[in-house]
Measured scan of single mutants.
Amino acid sequence: MDPFVVLVLCLSCLLLLSIWRQSSGRGKLPPGPTPLPVIGNILQIDIKDVSKSLTNLSKIYGPVFTLYFGLERMVVLHGYEVVKEALIDLGEEFSGRGHFPLAERANRGFGIVFSNGKRWKEIRRFSLMTLRNFGMGKRSIEDRVQEEARCLVEELRKTKASPCDPTFILGCAPCNVICSIIFQKRFDYKDQQFLNLMEKLNENIRIVSTPWIQICNNFPTIIDYFPGTHNKLLKNLAFMESDILEKVKEHQESMDINNPRDFIDCFLIKMEKEKQNQQSEFTIENLVITAADLLGAGTETTSTTLRYALLLLLKHPEVTAKVQEEIERVIGRNRSPCMQDRGHMPYTDAVVHEVQRYIDLIPTSLPHAVTCDVKFRNYLIPKGTTILTSLTSVLHDNKEFPNPEMFDPRHFLDEGGNFKKSNYFMPFSAGKRICVGEGLARMELFLFLTFILQNFNLKSLIDPKDLDTTPVVNGFASVPPFYQLCFIPV
């Protein structure tokens, strides 16, 4: 058959498939802009700032609406009420993970971030239990974070109060905490193996944040037939998995079943207990991918939040002064901060919360999916439909947070200066898919920041009023603009 005829037939089939998918069930789905064949609503979305586009569309179609990214149908949730109703009140029905062709290629359905069903539930339950087990290797997770915080302070001392970009050092600290939990080992910041790991993690975040990856996920045929950065992403992930597998083999040879040292040991012990169960989800494949998931999810998000926190503290020296006064009063100079201190430091706690609220790190979270046909607000959402959640619409709700575009710790303080919780605080998402490392991340943010401010004054290279804190939105995360500062020993 003539190649031209084959091409026309293929394009015609794709067009018909697109029209059929977009028209099927439209009477039951939430409203939304009319999609174009094949490309859907992509032309109506700013790929570099999806969150802003969703906010604009919500003003037209309401808090629940339908979009098509290519052939992929998505239902968008915008605003606290619908997000709570879906992710919390109907948590089980909305607990699936959205379709990610690239991740599915890399992870093969294993791990904790992109798995679904029984596998996801069992691996998540085990990971939560293990991360909360403060007795691994007779050292609590808090001990590990405190140790890394001391190392971080010593690295900052080496800058000798000269101007520096904190990106690298602030990236090393949370990565080392995860390494300590998974591998029972922290690395020197100049260790070549550690630097290679950091390089792969950072490069992957840069790649994932590009519009090209959005295109690959919406048109998965590209993955096999086109060159691009997605190939580098898959190569980096394969490198990390190979490295983790080597460490798993080392653990198998040296493990003491009665004295687990780290996450890998705990997983291997669980595998041993379930070795007679042919349906067990505790396999080497799941261990390797879960460890890679924890490394990827637990490094860049925390380091970016820390980097943004220091920029905001530079911009608002009056806030920094209040935090340091609270540190001096509650902790002093002669001991290290600990998590028990947080309950006695409402202002510092409010500042950490406000940093996370203000920066809105992951504006749309990772997409969910419905696990069955769901009736939601008089609409029928078919099983498997991807759910896109606007966390921006919750964290920047102007009824809950007056002047949401302003950095103001009073958003989390009552009139008496006591810490005030808010149900709208969802930087880790909400419901059954809430970030498994939430507790660890909150511990790291509090301890790293208090250790830094206990030991250093922060000095800006320019007038604080002239510092730009506008986030650089890159399609996946909101990151701070480049800046330098000086760490002046107190």
Rank of each mutant, 00 (worst) to 15 (best):
D349V: 09
A149H: 01
T301A: 14
C172H: 09
V490Q: 15
V352T: 06
I359R: 01
V323F: 04
H99R: 13
I141K: 05
L87W: 03
L413Q: 05
I207M: 11
S242A: 15
A350W: 02
N423R: 09
I488H: 12
S127N: 05
I207E: 06
A297S: 12
S162V: 11
A430I: 13
R433E: 02
S478D: 06
A103H: 13
T229K: 15
R139L: 14
G27Y: 11
I141M: 09
I39D: 02
K249W: 09
P382H: 04
R186T: 08
V319G: 01
Q184F: 11
E285I: 07
G296N: 15
F412R: 00
Q356V: 08
D360T: 09
F448V: 06
G32D: 00
N204T: 09
E272C: 12
C10A: 14
F446I: 01
T371Y: 05
P35W: 06
H411P: 00
V64Q: 02
E415F: 08
L413A: 02
K118M: 10
D397E: 05
P174G: 11
Q214I: 11
V352F: 06
P464W: 06
D188S: 11
K275T: 09
G416Y: 15
C435V: 02
S95V: 06
L87Q: 04
N41V: 00
N231K: 14
V145L: 09
I141L: 13
R97L: 04
T210V: 06
P166F: 02
N258R: 12
N41E: 01
K235W: 08
R139Q: 13
F419S: 04
P409S: 02
P402S: 13
P382W: 00
N398V: 13
K185E: 14
G135E: 15
L395R: 02
D224N: 08
I327F: 01
L391M: 07
L128G: 11
R442M: 10
T304L: 14
I222H: 04
R377T: 03
R150G: 09
T348R: 01
L391S: 01
I19G: 11
V5A: 13
N116T: 10
P363C: 02
T450R: 04
C151F: 14
S393I: 02
K48Q: 13
D2T: 14
K118G: 10
K399V: 15
K247F: 13
P174M: 15
L447I: 15
Q324M: 10
S280L: 05
V177Q: 02
D46R: 07
P402R: 12
K420T: 08
L461S: 15
T130S: 14
K322G: 10
P427I: 03
V64D: 02
N107V: 11
C179M: 12
V352M: 10
I88Q: 08
E81H: 08
L15M: 13
K247H: 04
E438S: 09
Q22E: 12
K232V: 13
K375G: 07
R342I: 14
R105D: 04
E328F: 14
L391G: 03
E300V: 13
S478E: 07
F412H: 02
P35I: 05
R21E: 07
V83L: 14
